[in-house]
């Protein structure tokens, strides 16, 4: 009576937000999920969680978005959070170059722990702070290109690009999934390791798909 609330043909995608401490991960999420911004938000300890829906091709697509702690100490414990993620936002702060330099470590972390192919976007947050910018748009872009990621600069404070960024990742996951569904039979064997829960109910409604970035 309680365990099949997620019935129907809706899609549920798990997305994680990662990046160094205090780059604005939590505020990106609350801006997207609740259109709120808190200039003094506390450090996230462990993990937090929000859901947000959008409609693509007349279908409701639900994103389950996980916001994780930034400090290295938590990485071992947070590995469970990556499980089943099909999308990721890797965030840095454009005013602190160390957070940009650590993007590579976050990508490694993601690759190590994710059990499927993940639609990834690099996010340079706090683009409202142009006057103290430390990482140029070009640097962000070229890193994204070399790593095969989407790229966008955002501001959780003034909302710039926040919705766009999340929706772009969600659309990408969706399109990868639909594409794969069309070919699912032929790809099934080959992609059996790239599994993702396409949640219909909470049981193993598992389908296979692969997604490439772009």
């Amino acid at each position: 009576m309680s365990d099949d609330d997620e019935r129907g043909e809706e899609y549920l995608f798990k997305i994680v937000i990662i990046g160094d401490s205090a780059v604005g991960k939590s505020n990106l999420l609350t801006r997207y999920a609740r259109n709120e911004f808190n200039p003094n938000s506390k450090a996230t300890i462990g993990v937090e969680f929000q859901t947000q829906s959008m409609v693509i091709d007349g279908k409701e697509v639900k994103a389950q978005i996980w916001d994780t702690a930034g400090q290295e100490r938590f990485r071992a414990v947070t590995s469970a959070y990556y499980r089943g993620a099909v999308g990721a936002l890797v965030v840095y702060d454009i005013t602190r170059s160390s957070t940009f330099e650590n993007v590579g470590r976050w990508l490694d972390e993601l690759n190590t722990h994710s059990d499927t192919t993940v639609a990834k976007m690099l996010i340079g947050n706090k683009c409202d702070l142009e006057s103290i910018r430390a990482v140029s748009v070009e640097e962000g872009k070229s890193l994204a290109e070399s790593e095969g990621l989407f790229f966008m600069e955002t501001s959780a404070l003034d909302s710039t690009n926040v919705k766009t960024a999340f929706e772009m990742v969600i659309r990408e996951i969706y399109s990868n999934m639909s594409r794969k569904q069309l070919n699912s039979d032929s790809y099934k064997e080959e992609l059996s390791s790239n599994r993702v829960s396409l949640v219909k109910n909470d049981n193993e409604g598992t389908k296979t798909f692969s997604c490439c970035s772009r």
């Binding site: 309680s2 365990d3 506390k42 300890i45 462990g46 993990v47 969680f49 414990v77 469970a80 959070y81 909470d202």
Partner: peptide
């Protein structure tokens, strides 16, 4: 078992921060 909630997802903060949050 039924809803498959890993207790880490909520109890990590409860325990490490001694319920201050």
């Amino acid at each position: 078992v039924t809803t498959k909630i890993n207790p880490q997802f909520y109890a990590f903060r409860w325990i490490t921060l001694l319920l201050t949050q």
